[in-house]
Design a binder for these strands. Structure first.
Length: 257
DNA sequence: ATGTCGTGACCTTCACGA
């Protein structure tokens, strides 16, 4: 079973690319982030045509997450994270699909540092950790997939000197991410590529793609039962190089049946 | 130092978020 995560940076602008990717790679589950549309604007019929059921949590202009399932309808098990009634961002959606509990996560960017946006990022990560602890109690395999906006290690960015002041590389962000790993979650790509230097994001600016100045922020965290079934993982890098591409590349895992 | 996108709004151009 293939489970992918893809920050598409606007589902309206990206729809042809997204449908093309689905047809070419046929993931069993696709977690989408930054759909950047209200619920009414979600093109569910387009996915249905390709055999995908979907659930989505939209928001006007920004954020927004979705879960697609091939030949199935995801059964929603969570929408938003508990712990902050003031939080109106659409960043978390969770469902049961094909015997797996899966979450589509769009973790706050957190820039600039310091400031309220960075505080929000860190508190959001605490709330995610609390939800993850609940999910760890399930018998089902669990996959927490999404754009974490955290660069976990120096070898997860093209230059160790880049983005040092950025929220994506702050010690507090990295520590919160490592806390999840310490709780028993497995970073799939880190396990399979221990030497690092596998990118999932290349900025639109400054010729980052052309120079391969990327970094890794799209992660799939696996519960122990899911990690036991991990057989392969990777990044659909070629899709980042196409016309009108997202600034992220699809990132995926393969679980044994 | 700069570089680019996508979205939305009294909208042919800017502000914002990333």
């Amino acid at each position: 079973m293939r489970i992918a995560t893809f920050n598409i940076n606007g589902i309206k602008a990206r729809l042809p690319r997204l449908l093309e990717w689905l047809e070419e790679t046929r993931p069993d589950i696709a977690c989408l982030q930054e759909i950047k549309t209200q619920d009414e604007g979600f093109p569910a019929a387009e996915f249905e045509r390709l055999g995908y059921g979907a659930i989505w949590h939209g928001q006007k202009g920004f954020n927004g997450v979705a879960i697609l399932a091939r030949d199935a309808q995801p059964v929603e098990s969570g929408r938003g994270l508990a712990g902050d009634p003031e939080d109106v961002h659409s960043r978390y959606l969770e469902a049961d699909v094909h015997g797996v509990r899966v979450a589509s996560i769009y973790l706050p960017n957190g820039n600039p540092v310091p400031g309220p946006k960075f505080d929000y990022k860190l508190s959001w990560m605490k709330r995610l950790r609390a939800r993850a602890a609940e999910l760890a109690m399930l018998e089902l395999p669990v996959v927490l997939a999404g754009d974490y906006n955290v660069i976990p290690h120096d070898h997860d960015i093209w230059s160790t000197k880049a983005l040092l002041d950025d929220a994506l590389r702050q010690p507090e962000s990295i520590a919160a991410y490592r806390t999840l790993l310490a709780d028993g979650w497995t970073d799939a790509l880190a396990t399979h590529y221990p030497q690092g230097r596998v990118w999932t994001y290349w900025d639109y600016q400054a010729g980052a793609w052309q120079q391969d100045h990327g970094f890794r922020i799209d992660h799939l965290l696996l519960s122990p039962v899911a990690a036991d079934r991990l057989v392969a993982c990777g990044v659909d890098k070629a899709h980042r190089g196409r016309e009108k591409a997202s600034d992220h590349a699809p990132t995926w895992i393969e679980l044994s049946d």
